[in-house]
Nucleic acid binder design. Structure first.
Lengths: 307, 307
DNA sequence: TGGTCCGATACCAATTTTGGATCAAATCGC
DNA sequence: GCGATTTGATCCAAAATTGGTATCGGACCA
């Protein structure tokens, strides 16, 4: 098969319509240029240029090949450029796993920030529970996980991007909805909707620990994995629940969301996790964006707290 | 800039994920393969492959480059293939000039036949009068002319593709429309619409000769270049005219078309013309199609005549 | 008909490429 | 653990390719 140098030779001659000038443009002498064109023609089995004694002009096949040749050269250049951009972390793609809950609160901001700062980067988002994310991280199927603790030490790096309060969700007309804050003991006295022990293990364990520390034992009437399912059940009047603050973004009608009493507050943490041997050049770039976003989130959280 | 052989090397390694196997696939040994990859990486300034001791895998930049590389290789192959097809007269494009009149009778059949037999060929059709076609043929701006005599000998080849009778056009209600055939003398007695001496020189000269031979001198009331314009004027009752038989295809309401008396008939000829030094491989192919079409047209004409 | 322009050819020198041998590192099996 | 094996990298001599100089041959021009 032919070589790119030959294609460049041909394009030069076809554009100059003159071997001598084309050779000059290619920084070479005329004889080797003639030879390269001949070789190209022999490889293709097609005469590309009609050499009259005073003029050179492309044959119809040469004309057609010229069009393609220009395209090929353009493509090679853009391929090289793209590879460099990817290596520089300015283009490419990253697979990101995220939990359903984070899609309400953190993922949208992260995606927006990336789109703005890295317009040529493709973010491939895959919703999955934290456990699956850890598995996929290990297998190299996702580059980044946005997940809940616990995080095993083995070859993973991570930092916290979010810590959001758990707040109570009660039916809108419920007597507890009347107060600005809700006491954990009052909540535990109601029929309680909680999280599925595997699919939403983090929240499940969080609540178990929260209640046992407070020496409370609520009556669990339902286990669910998704926050929006829980809110729907609360709305239906089946019981009350504790959900992360991000649930406010869902704007669920008929459900009142109230913070817990100050001394009972508990934060649900979200971590940005990656394999430390992941060589995707986008990783440090996106990690920096994520860290920056998290920093701003925490400082604004402090603001909110101080009000 | 890099070479296609290096791209092929890289694709092989990226697909096999193994230098040895890739080398075997490329019919070479492993050391030069390793080196070609290194050279490619140095040219791009980007590490494309991560060599672990038991595994090779593409870096993100390599992954992106792999996609582009496959595209480049595919394009080179298709470019070579296309060039060969053009050289074989199976693809490509031809510029064809044609007279307005031929667009009613011959061009549609020719285009249809080409589309069917040469689906990958682009026919670029340009309407122009015969004189312009000869000029453009000389300048190489069209490959084929479909035009009227006279044709100069200088470096042109040609053959006749059509000879169509001239027929009389009279307003539908006109007294001459009553007869099945019209006598030239009767026609010449009417106000006569004829052809512009330059733009439609062939028809102009044809009529001049026809009438002078018959020792007739019609009163010319209007000169026009286009057949449909002439028919429109005839329809308006301004006068009568002689038009090529193909005018029947126009289906002009309010105009009666009648053949001349048998001994007065006169044929308008259409020729397929090209420069004998034109190297477009499509030329012989399309000429053959045109000749075939002309042959069938003439034989069917003989049929009509024998009835 | 000689001069000039232009691409092709012949031949030569330099570089590049090739592939065998070898090396170094790491994994696997016993 | 410790060789045996696998895998990519490196070294080196031979071969091929490439580019350059000189020259040729044909065509147009004066």
């Amino acid at each position: 098969m032919f070589e790119l140098s030959q294609v460049r030779c041909f394009v030069a001659v076809a554009e100059e319509l003159h071997f001598g000038r084309a050779a000059a443009r290619l920084n070479m002498t005329q004889p080797p240029l003639s030879r390269q064109i001949q070789i190209l023609e022999r490889i293709l089995g097609v005469k590309l240029l009609q050499r009259g004694n005073r003029l050179v002009r492309p044959t119809p096949a040469g004309q057609s090949f010229l069009t393609e040749a220009r395209l090929i050269l353009k493509l090679t250049e853009s391929a090289a450029l793209l590879a460099r951009r990817v290596a520089d972390g300015k283009a490419g793609s990253v697979n990101i796993g995220f939990t359903a809950a984070s899609s309400y609160s953190y993922v949208p901001e992260l995606v927006a920030a990336c789109r703005q700062q890295l317009p040529d980067v493709e973010l491939i988002l895959k919703e999955m529970v934290s456990g699956d994310q850890l598995k996929r991280l290990g297998a190299g199927e996702i580059d980044i996980g946005l997940l809940r603790p616990p995080i095993p030490r083995s070859g993973l790096q991570f930092f916290r991007v979010k810590a959001e309060r758990m707040i109570a969700a009660v039916p809108a007309g419920h007597k507890l909805a009347a107060a600005a804050t809700i006491d954990l003991a009052d909540l535990a006295a109601e029929p309680f909707i909680t999280y599925a022990p595997y699919e939403a293990r983090y929240f499940h364990d969080l609540l178990v620990e929260l209640f046992s520390r407070a020496a409370l034992a609520p009556v669990y009437v339902q286990h669910l994995a998704q926050i929006h399912s829980i809110l729907a059940i609360v709305q239906a009047g089946v019981g009350v629940a504790l959900v992360p603050e991000a649930a406010e973004k869902l704007q669920f009608k008929g459900v009142a969301l109230r913070p817990l009493a100050d001394d009972q507050q508990r934060a649900a943490e979200l971590y940005f996790v990656w394999r430390d041997d992941n060589d995707n050049p986008l990783l440090p770039v996106i990690a920096a964006i994520a860290r920056d976003l998290a920093g701003r989130a925490f400082s604004s959280e402090v603001d909110t707290g101080s009000r």
